[in-house]
Design a protein around this nucleic acid. Structure first.
Lengths: 330, 330
DNA sequence: CGCGTTTACGTCGTTCGTAACGATA
DNA sequence: TATCGTTACGAACGACGTAAACGCG
């Protein structure tokens, strides 16, 4: 058993049991992976994958167990390399971030921009995905950190750092009745309108839905999207009233009017979540500092290394970052 | 970085920085280890060990961190091999147990005897040591399981299974005043006598000492030993009154009289402690079943694999095992 | 001078990539 | 027939053990 064999094994599993694809990803040849996999199976004395003819059709029960341990081993091996790279003050590296579209589109551009200016040698890999898929990616070790939002407490996976708070915002066309009134709508008035919102917010167990249910209301969902831009577009089209994150609404929105909704819905928190047991590269702590300046990087280091437990200062509320971003002004 | 290099690294650390000794232990040559260590250090780009001339004088701070991760990696690699060996129903293997002298001498002989008859291919390695050194051995991965005693709750390290309960016993020579009376001595009477007991029991923070302190008493320690045999020997010599585990006293003790002490001191529990994250070989579960038959092996497997949390049935009280052991009848 | 580490060197095993073959949908 | 996995082979690298040299107490 060698580290290379375990690396190949995990690569094959992550490539959906396609050895050829896995070989490309690890920069090796396909026969090499085939042979190493066979040798590993021979040494262990059992099949790691179920085979149908020559192709791999699934993972055996024992294979799953071995895979899990192989991932742990590779993560720790990566940690050792991270320690070495930190000591050498190695500038290059990669930073893989799993997050939702909203964060990637509105909260992260400034942060990533400032980060890449400070660390031009680090290749940032943004991995936007569905709300539900972000934390599993972190657990599987596919990314170094995740940026997720929620109105409850911190997520259970990994080490969670509060980055900022934000409220939901109601968006209507300029000619909508809501836009002509002085006061923002009540929950009842909102529930009477067709709604356009995030996919995740419209799930039955989401905080937004639970707010309606608690008030005995059943809102009508006209459309959902994973994307604030899409939501605003369809609100412009008159599909309904938009409910989205305040970050996704710029102050000078043409055709649209943004109304506060913090009197209706609980405040949300955006969390930076680090993988458990990860040894962070120094630039990763820099990234966190850029994103959440209210958190002392030394505290992060202490918590990550297991010397202390979390006890973070209160996060600030979202504010439009200094200057308009290129994206926002288009 | 290879698994072999990490194995050599850990071996060198465990051999007290003696590369030659480490080489013997891993069945390799000393220049081989030297070279692999150098290559690993070259790859990481920093020294893992502090050197004075050619000899190793200590571990660097980063080296400690790498060592810790290397141990994790090797433990997981061992787990993978254990999964394989279990699937192959491999009979041979080793079972390394860290425990105290009392357990090794009085509680374990029957268990180990029955175990080796069922598993003749498994080499059992008993590692008796001081009370304080048992759990650290488990944490460091030097042994597969530990057998420890305490009067409080389960130890914090690893997964603890209650094996049995026991009480302390007072032992005096046949001509001692205590032996001629009908009722056993009170705590005050006991504190007035010079005591002979276990080293660990006589520490200021031990349960036994705390019992005396709670009663406002300060006992006089005549002698301590790590060993019930020694304690009895010196009690025979008239050095004082012995306080030891009931397992260490056979019913027909010549020259000595055993008096109950369960009215004076809290009941103790002997725990089987498994290393966190260890994948147990099947024979290890057999060993546990032999030692603690009241525990369902399937529950152990579930807890070890992380599927369930501990909730163990009440352990029985110590009883002299069926038949007299060869040791006890001499 | 003994112990322990490093260096040097020759041999062996292993891995890797290229290329051809085979099976499967 | 196109795609994917296996087998075959040759070249090159790397690890290992033996033997000798070096430093240190």
């Amino acid at each position: 058993m060698t580290l290379v064999q375990l690396r190949y094994l995990v690569a094959i599993a992550d490539a959906g049991l396609n050895i050829t694809l896995a070989a490309e990803r690890v920069h090796a040849t396909q026969p090499g992976l085939s042979k190493q996999l066979r040798q590993l199976e021979d040494e262990l004395g059992f099949r790691l994958f179920l085979r149908k003819g020559k192709s791999l059709q699934g993972v055996t029960a024992a294979g799953e167990s071995v895979l899990h341990r192989a991932r742990t081993i590779l993560a720790e091996a990566g940690n050792i390399l991270a320690i070495a790279a930190n000591l050498r003050c190695e500038a290059q590296g990669s930073l893989r971030i799993a997050t939702t579209h909203t964060q990637a589109r509105f909260a992260l551009p400034d942060v990533v921009g400032a980060f890449t200016r400070r660390h031009p040698e680090v290749s940032v890999h943004l991995n936007p995905g569905r709300e539900a898929g972000v934390l599993p990616q972190l657990r599987a070790g596919g990314v170094d950190l995740a940026v997720v939002s929620g109105s409850g407490g911190p997520p259970l996976t990994g080490i969670a750092l509060p980055a900022y708070h934000w409220n939901r915002t109601i968006v209507v066309p300029k000619d909508h009745p809501f836009a002509r009134r002085a006061r923002p709508p009540s929950l009842e008035e909102l529930a009477a309108q067709p709604l356009v919102g995030y996919e995740s917010s419209m799930l039955p167990d989401s905080a937004l839905q639970r707010t309606f249910v608690a008030a005995g209301l059943r809102p009508r969902i006209a459309m959902t999207a994973g994307d604030g831009d899409l939501i605003r577009t369809y609100v412009r089209e008159g599909l309904g009233v938009g409910v989205l994150a305040e970050m996704a609404v710029s102050p000078d929105e043409r055709d649209l009017v943004a109304l506060p909704a913090d009197h209706l819905f609980d405040r949300c928190t955006t969390w930076i979540v680090l993988r458990d047991g990860l040894v962070p590269r120094d630039y990763l702590l820099d990234f966190i500092h850029e994103f959440a300046p209210h958190i002392d990087p030394r505290d992060v280091r202490r918590v990550v290394s297991g010397e202390a437990t979390a006890g973070w200062p209160a996060a600030p509320h979202w504010r439009q970052r200094g200057g308009r971003t290129a994206q926002e002004t288009t």
